[in-house]
Design a binder for these strands. Sequence first.
DNA 1: TAAACACAGGCAAACGAATTCATTCATCCA
DNA 2: TGGATGAATGAATTCGTTTGCCTGTGTTTA
Lengths: 339, 339
Amino acid sequence: MRVTINDIAKKAQVSASTVSRVIADSPLISAATKEKVLKIMKEMNYHPNIIARSLVNRSPQIIGVVMPGMAEQSFQHPFFPELLAGIGSMANKQGYKILLANVATLDEEKQMVKELTFGGITAGLILLTSRDQNPTVDQLVETGFPFVVIGRTENPCVNWVDNDNFLIGYQLVEHFLEQGHRRIAFLGYSPGFTVTRDRLQGYKKALTDHKIPIDNGLVVESEFISANGYDLMKRLLALRERPTAVIACDDLLAFGAIKAIHEAGLQVPADIAVAGINNVPLADYYNPPLTSVKINAFALGTKAFEMLQTVLTSSVESYNRAIVPAELVVRSSSLSVKN
Amino acid sequence: MRVTINDIAKKAQVSASTVSRVIADSPLISAATKEKVLKIMKEMNYHPNIIARSLVNRSPQIIGVVMPGMAEQSFQHPFFPELLAGIGSMANKQGYKILLANVATLDEEKQMVKELTFGGITAGLILLTSRDQNPTVDQLVETGFPFVVIGRTENPCVNWVDNDNFLIGYQLVEHFLEQGHRRIAFLGYSPGFTVTRDRLQGYKKALTDHKIPIDNGLVVESEFISANGYDLMKRLLALRERPTAVIACDDLLAFGAIKAIHEAGLQVPADIAVAGINNVPLADYYNPPLTSVKINAFALGTKAFEMLQTVLTSSVESYNRAIVPAELVVRSSSLSVKN
DNA sequence: TAAACACAGGCAAACGAATTCATTCATCCA
DNA sequence: TGGATGAATGAATTCGTTTGCCTGTGTTTA
């Protein structure tokens, strides 16, 4: 049988309210009583029932994290665990627990979010999404339930935190320009995903800022992380005028691209320079080591939690956004030989 | 204001008990009433409060998943999300929610497990660990709280599910033997981790089964996933009599090893064949493509959930174990050229 | 010396649902 | 026709906490 607050009260010869106040460290209780009760709590190995507590406060110390399932390839992504760690570390500090809801389909997501919002089990939600349109987000906005999006959607009425995807695209272009490249390709633009779109926009802006005309033939669409960098690269290799540098929207794409380049008898970076994004652990081990951009997933997580917390505590309604910087990691795959 | 069972009752002009029974689809309620109540529930967008429900049933439909944090490198591992997806998919089906507790230190883990077991918030726990000794496990055994371990510990009083690490080691050796190798190294044995120990034992058993003497100089210790395969391999390369094949306990180690081999002016697999374990997405893209072993993390997750569920429902105490098979994925890094 | 005031703590009512026990009808059989 | 039976529902209690309000002591102040 589980030991309850009443057991403690009885043993300490006080009322349950007193015990409750001791737990809350209320100033209403004398030091002596506090000490006595605390001692007994320890002795009996008492831990307050979080469920009961949540019921009366009506604000469970639990936040839900909803992430797309295996279907969305992103789930495979190594930064997911890091993201979770970020959210979790913050949550732990603040005494929150996190409820992880990984959903496989959009319907499941909708259903899950409904349960979580109306079920009284979570105080707020963190939603992972990188799509333009997300019906779940719209649904949440309607109900007014507190939530934060990691990623970005087009619905303006949301709090979100995201990488600086625009800047990532911009910086990679500048990096290649510095290396003397003029024909820079963008591999893996996936319409419908804000991630890739923002990166593409950064790419385009950098080019126009440097007076380089945009060649749409150098922008190759794909399904984001799916492993077809190889095929996509072949399309670029077939062009009359090949690019001399390639920005891949994900390291995995980049690896596929490099494979294709090698197969065509060309060298990286001598003939075609390549850079990826996300800085997977293996980027460093690849041959050649892959230039990439390090996403700070941990920070993304902590930031999201903080934002959710302000949403929960503040009474004024406002839409916050936060942009977490990323860091260019230059390795030899993008360095011109002459440098 | 949240809509409660009483609101529904009032609107439907029945008692709360009736509504509750409608929710439970009790046979005590007439079809007419059921229909009426259900309609109103839908209209008012009512969802039962999971917290309140948990309080009265004393068995929350929530299971906790405790995973080591960033400190344990395993958290970086790509199979974590897959594992979570496995647990989650099963949990969703059974109407359970999962509470994710990612802890950074062992102390934090202990504290967290205490809160989760005594806090009444979870019905059971799934614990991820790959260490021999885990105080948290011992603690859980003592309290008698229902839990399942993914991985393996030396404490005999636990339910666990694990990969067939012994077989993995065994099969990799056999694979290399078939390719004509006799001097096979084992890279990344990490004492204290059952994972690597089981694999090493499989390795040794396979060798003795094939009458090949074990050379302990060919077994190199490490910190498991940490990225020092490069350094470890250098030790092997410095041997008077080099191995002709290397089994790395993780793909990342294997990549590091290959880098070292290349730097030494040797070829993979011509001079030294290499195989990894875990089959990370990039194994296929590496040059040469890396032979590896595909861990079925999803199955590991579903199995663990199922096991926990039987623990929760069955009254007899018994210690179950389940071993999930893995699959050898042969690629060119381990294939002798002559074949 | 009586009134005012802290201070420490107890009592009891929530919180939202499930469940046991009791109640109301209508029906049935003798 | 009256008591027994059973189906459908309601009232009240319970789960373990928190918290607003009240009470009983001292201690201070006029």
